[in-house]
Design a protein around this nucleic acid. Sequence first.
DNA 1: AGTCACCTGATT
DNA 2: AATCAGGTGACT
Length: 272
Amino acid sequence: MPELPEVEAVCRIVERALRGRRIVSAHIFRRRICAPQTPEAFSKLVAGRRVTSIERRGKNILIHLEGLTLLAHLRMTGNLHSIAGGALAARLRPVTVSAHLLLDDGRTLVFDDPRGLGAMRALEAGSLAKVLASVGVDPLAPDFTPDRLRSLVRSSRAPIKLLLMDQHKIAGLGNIYAAEALYRSRIDPRRPAHSLSDLRLARLHRAIVAVLRQALPSATRAYRRPGAFAEAESFNPAVYGREGLPCRRCRRPIRRLQQGGRSTYLCPHCQR
DNA sequence: AGTCACCTGATT
DNA sequence: AATCAGGTGACT
């Protein structure tokens, strides 16, 4: 579910739960979540360490500990939240919970994940740097400039929507916000990336930033309820999921097509 | 560069 | 029963 705004919302929740805390112990309920590390190795690495800071890079959540970083990724259905209680909570946990981190204030950070595709690995500085080197520019960071976008598209003949969703290039846009940004900048998602004029790229850059910023408050609200997911209804997409409904600009029907095996929504009249 | 597997749950 | 899902990496 989560794209950049939702991950940012989760980050703030994690920040509040973990600031100044020490991790007493880690409990893995799905081995996949920390693969290729074993749950035993993961727990041993993490137990007893103090949290120093929380950071987001694209859709990755970085929980910096003393001498180690937890790299968490929510994938499609992951969520992190904190609950009261420690060891007892583990026995009452829903089957969807992948991991618990027990904290020194008696609370527990829960990694909940119905589909179980999420990940949380413990990395020392060297391997963390390697992973982060392959993460693209964060569209809400200051170094995401129109020039940067231009240099990214120049080398690619891929459809612009696929480029926007390529986390090695731009980290944070997913299927919804890529579609929304293209609609807002009136660009056809099928356009080869390198074919966009500087004027269109400038519009696209503005649209990406605007769409993400606009989504932040509703994402934050949606995730503030404990255990809740950000629902699609938490904001009103202009095109995403609106197949057959009238375009808000020209009233012609929104169309759906497949790109890279996933649904893309567009107004063929407004987006060129 | 395009397709698929990884999972599970909701919807048609 | 079949299809869809807001992600990603490993395949061909």
